[in-house]
Design a binder for these strands. Structure first.
Lengths: 125, 125
DNA sequence: TTCACGCATCGAGGATCTTCGATCTGAGGA
DNA sequence: TCCTCAGATCGAAGATCCTCGATGCGTGAA
């Protein structure tokens, strides 16, 4: 998550042969395999309705954080399932985990969603 | 896709009983089931590396559009598979399809990615 | 009309994901 | 130390997704 993600690299201009009969040529290089995979991994973290709701419920708390016991009831799923989804979002860099005593508090990473939005706008630049 | 998507509805304030022993109370309603499902559906459209690359390749063309024959080779997949992914992105509102003669031209919907980015920032508001 | 071509649709096989109950780990209290 | 509790981890079952070859549909040329 530390690396900057970019759908396209505008610094490299790639001229393409105009032999094609139907289609417009490329004006720049497309995203490589690793970049696309990393971008897709972040989006996959929000591709499940349960995870979207979890993120929303966490953000709806006044301190911006919530423990697992606060999340199982709103989404109506078992505790192992909620833990599983939370782990996925932590791995994607969307949430942070803070263990305090017996409880684990999850909070939304500041700017993580904005970073994802900025990443998208680069696709059409 | 015509409906506006929002992770949270800030107009409804939901006071919560403070009987919980460990956790912070809610300050506003979280996303409902239908909203979360619709949001997740859009994100799922970009949760696959192949689709991210397809979007990138299409955007990399100078006119901003490309036909299927231009997309199978860059992603290294069969034509039915590419057609399948393109249909998913059209259904998600990320691409538009324009049939001209024997060819079908796909282009990125203007502002679709920005709309998705704005949708994200609302989650932490 | 007949043919060739681009693309969509249709199953099917294999991989991945979601969800669960059962179990393990770690912290705090008696 | 022993017990209780919050949460993570572990298989496993079922659902969903990705991919393909085969086939159907519509367009344009001959």
């Amino acid at each position: 998550m530390a690396t900057t993600l970019a759908l396209t690299d505008v610094s490299r201009i790639k001229p393409v042969d105009a032999s094609g009969a139907c289609c417009a040529p490329l004006v720049r290089e497309a995203a490589d395999l690793e970049s696309a995979a990393e971008i897709a991994r972040v989006f996959k973290a929000l591709s499940d309705p349960t995870r979207v709701r979890l993120l929303s419920v966490i953000a709806a708390h006044d301190v911006g954080e919530a423990c697992v016991c606060d999340l199982t009831e709103p989404v109506g799923l078992s505790q192992p399932t909620v833990s599983h989804h939370l782990k996925l979002m932590v791995d994607a860099g969307l949430l942070t985990r803070d263990q305090r005593g017996k409880w684990a508090y999850y909070s939304v990473v500041p700017g993580a969603l904005n970073r994802l939005g900025a990443l998208l706008t680069e696709a059409t630049s």
